[in-house]
């Protein structure tokens, strides 16, 4: 069984040109991140051969300052239409101000049979009440599995009680009452990260479709952005939701877990803007692709950059 392949684009220009994996692997300019993309495209080719992207993702899951403009969204919609791609719009957790920024974008999307990934219950509420034609998808930030590569890789191999390991590989998505609730709210698909400790995806049998991101997982995110502090006086830095100049686009910060009490001192974490990410290992990618080939994961979303690109 082949999953549906989706590509998270940073801007409309990404869709102008051939869709080869070798070209997509060059979207990310960071020398630190590029090796992960080369590994990923190599494994896709090895496991699946030629693939066809049928849907594009656009938008941001982590920061309301990166909600795209109406113009950028229109350009992305046009580019997707020209390539005959279905469209999914990503939204972050938001304040009332962020909700206001989303409203005109939803109004534009409403005539395009688009999906909207919500990572905030307020966004779902707004969609249901004012934009019922848009198709809601539960985002990965609302899937509360532990994603802490400091310990999860240890948990995956530790002689811990089975109940504890199983709990770490699941979330409330394995509860039928919850999946029924989501269905009642018009949600047919939920998104998840590929967890370092492994994913138990047996809940997919409850009728919900499952979508997974690769090759980066999110660890944590904040309304306080280190990068946004760059242009402020020290006493004014690090205020929640403070205005920024999208300083996150100018640099990447890589952390090495050199203070680990375990053996995983080569574990890396990447900070882009207000959010921390981990990169998938080869073993994690192989497991994910196997789960997609065997059925439980219906959709794979390839993010060829750390997902913090300004549109």
């Amino acid at each position: 069984m082949n999953p549906t392949w989706c590509l998270h684009i940073g801007r409309a220009e990404d869709l102008r040109g051939e869709f080869s994996l070798s070209r997509i692997a060059t979207f990310e300019k960071s020398a630190t991140i590029q090796p992960y993309l080369h590994l990923t495209t190599q494994l896709i080719a090895e496991q699946f051969g030629e693939i066809e992207f049928t849907r594009c993702y656009f938008g941001n899951e982590f920061c309301e300052h990166l909600i795209p403009s109406l113009k950028a969204l229109q350009a992305a919609l046009d580019a997707a239409q020209a390539q005959n791609l279905s469209f999914t719009f990503l939204t972050p957790y938001v304040t009332n101000e962020g909700l206001q920024a989303l409203r005109p974008l939803f109004a534009l999307l409403a005539s395009h049979n688009a999906e909207v990934v919500f990572n905030d219950w307020g966004v779902l509420n707004l969609l249901r009440r004012e934009f019922p034609t848009l198709i809601p998808v539960q985002g990965r930030l609302l899937n509360k599995s532990l994603r802490d590569p400091r310990v999860t890789t240890m948990y995956a191999t530790a002689p811990a009680p089975t109940a504890a390991i199983t709990a770490l590989q699941r979330s409330n998505l394995d509860c039928e009452s919850y999946t029924r609730l989501l269905t009642r709210f018009g949600v047919q698909m939920v998104e998840m990260d590929n967890l370092p400790q492994g994913n138990d995806v047996s809940f997919a049998a409850h009728g919900l479709q499952l979508s997974a991101y690769f090759p980066f997982g999110f660890i944590s995110t904040s309304r306080v952005c280190m990068a946004a502090g760059l242009h402020h006086h020290p006493s004014e830095k690090f205020q929640p939701g403070a205005p920024c100049r999208h300083e996150c686009q100018s640099h990447l910060l890589a952390y090495a877990y050199t203070n680990s009490p375990f053996g995983n001192r080569d574990q890396k974490f990447y900070l882009k803007g207000n959010s921390y990410f981990y990169a998938h290992t080869e073993a994690m990618l192989r497991t994910l692709f196997m789960q997609a080939q065997s059925g439980p994961i219906a959709r794979l979303v390839f993010q060829p950059r750390l997902p913090m690109k300004e549109a």
């Binding site: 640099h251 890589a254 050199t258």
Partner: peptide
């Protein structure tokens, strides 16, 4: 932790 910045 040890850190390394990369400029875009």
């Amino acid at each position: 932790m040890e850190t390394k910045f990369e400029w875009a």
